[in-house]
Simulated assay, not measured.
Amino acid sequence: MSAAAPDLQRAPSLAEQIYQRLRFQARAGAFEPGERLVESNLATQLAVSRSPVREALSRLTADGLLEMRSGGFYVAMPTPRDMAEIFEMRRLLEPTAARQVAREKSAELVVELTAAFDRTRAANEGGDFATFTDANYSFRALWVARVANRRLRETILRFDDQAGFVRRTTLIRADARIEVIALLQDFITAFKTGDEDIATKATNAFIDGAERHYRDVAHSFS
């Protein structure tokens, strides 16, 4: 019997790379709700042709991150009901995920999270909001990537797609940023010591804070 042929490995296409970059930026809150993403501008910024940019934007539209209006691509904005359901699902999913990660006590993860935390804190102290939102989401992406249950991990990330604009509109508040920084420290402690209870409390506090700040500014979305 002949040996099984190895799986083919292909490098990500240019359109895939652009898609992943824009998706990360959207999750991090890099775009304004309702903002138009112009193909030609993105192509110039990325030094690529418009074709892979258009393909990436079309995929993001299929994901629900963007919507087509008047022949253009615009950042979609979830309704208040959408957000209430997302917060409910986060409460069901994320504490379990954080407990799984804490159980691993990964020293490598702690090093990566500490670097992301330092970047987040420095950005806040320097008044660099764009870097703050990027570093804050990088912190989250690092620990979520360590969730052992693949389906749980992918489900959490799917809800991230609709929550990017909430990060952008709530983290502009100084009190929200200070609260986030304190909770990031709690996450690091939980993952370093393997304390699942601290991981659970930090996760619930993070979600509660996000929803509270969202409600405080929700009137500006209407």
Results as ranks from 00 to 15, higher is better:
71 G>C: 02
123 A>M: 05
77 M>S: 13
89 M>S: 14
119 R>G: 01
128 D>A: 10
108 E>V: 11
135 A>T: 06
69 R>E: 11
90 R>Q: 14
91 R>N: 11
130 A>Q: 14
106 S>W: 01
116 A>C: 12
94 E>V: 11
80 P>W: 02
136 N>T: 06
119 R>Q: 12
97 A>I: 01
113 L>A: 09
75 V>E: 05
101 V>K: 00
126 G>D: 09
118 D>N: 03
101 V>Y: 01
99 R>M: 01
97 A>R: 07
134 D>E: 15
126 G>K: 03
110 V>Q: 04
72 G>N: 08
107 A>G: 13
77 M>F: 00
114 T>V: 07
100 Q>T: 00
133 T>A: 05
123 A>G: 08
120 T>L: 07
109 L>R: 10
87 F>P: 02
125 E>F: 03
97 A>E: 04
134 D>I: 03
116 A>K: 09
77 M>T: 14
97 A>Q: 01
68 M>V: 00
68 M>H: 04
133 T>F: 00
95 P>F: 13
87 F>T: 05
99 R>A: 04
70 S>E: 15
93 L>Q: 08
74 Y>P: 06
75 V>P: 09
101 V>L: 01
97 A>K: 01
81 R>D: 13
68 M>L: 12
74 Y>G: 09
128 D>I: 07
87 F>W: 01
79 T>A: 10
129 F>R: 06
80 P>V: 07
83 M>T: 12
124 N>H: 15
130 A>S: 13
135 A>F: 12
90 R>P: 09
123 A>Q: 07
93 L>I: 12
74 Y>E: 10
130 A>N: 11
95 P>N: 13
102 A>H: 02
125 E>I: 04
128 D>S: 11
134 D>G: 08
97 A>P: 04
72 G>L: 02
78 P>K: 00
101 V>W: 05
109 L>P: 10
91 R>D: 10
115 A>V: 10
99 R>K: 08
109 L>N: 06
77 M>H: 00
123 A>L: 09
90 R>D: 11
74 Y>R: 05
76 A>G: 10
114 T>N: 13
82 D>P: 07
130 A>F: 11
115 A>T: 11
95 P>V: 14
84 A>E: 15
99 R>F: 02
87 F>V: 03
96 T>S: 14
131 T>R: 14
114 T>S: 12
108 E>C: 01
112 E>L: 14
130 A>H: 13
125 E>C: 01
122 A>G: 04
103 R>F: 01
128 D>G: 02
82 D>S: 04
86 I>M: 06
119 R>L: 11
113 L>C: 04
86 I>K: 00
82 D>W: 05
121 R>T: 11
97 A>F: 06
120 T>Y: 07
122 A>S: 14
77 M>W: 00
116 A>Q: 12
103 R>K: 08
101 V>G: 03
80 P>T: 05
68 M>K: 13
126 G>C: 00
132 F>A: 00
120 T>K: 03
90 R>G: 10
136 N>S: 13
103 R>T: 00
100 Q>M: 09
126 G>N: 03
90 R>Y: 15
121 R>K: 15
133 T>V: 14
108 E>S: 13
114 T>E: 08
95 P>A: 13
117 F>P: 08
72 G>D: 10
104 E>M: 14
69 R>M: 08
74 Y>A: 08
127 G>A: 06
130 A>P: 09
90 R>E: 15
126 G>W: 00
106 S>Q: 08
92 L>F: 04
84 A>C: 06
71 G>S: 08
86 I>Y: 09
132 F>K: 05
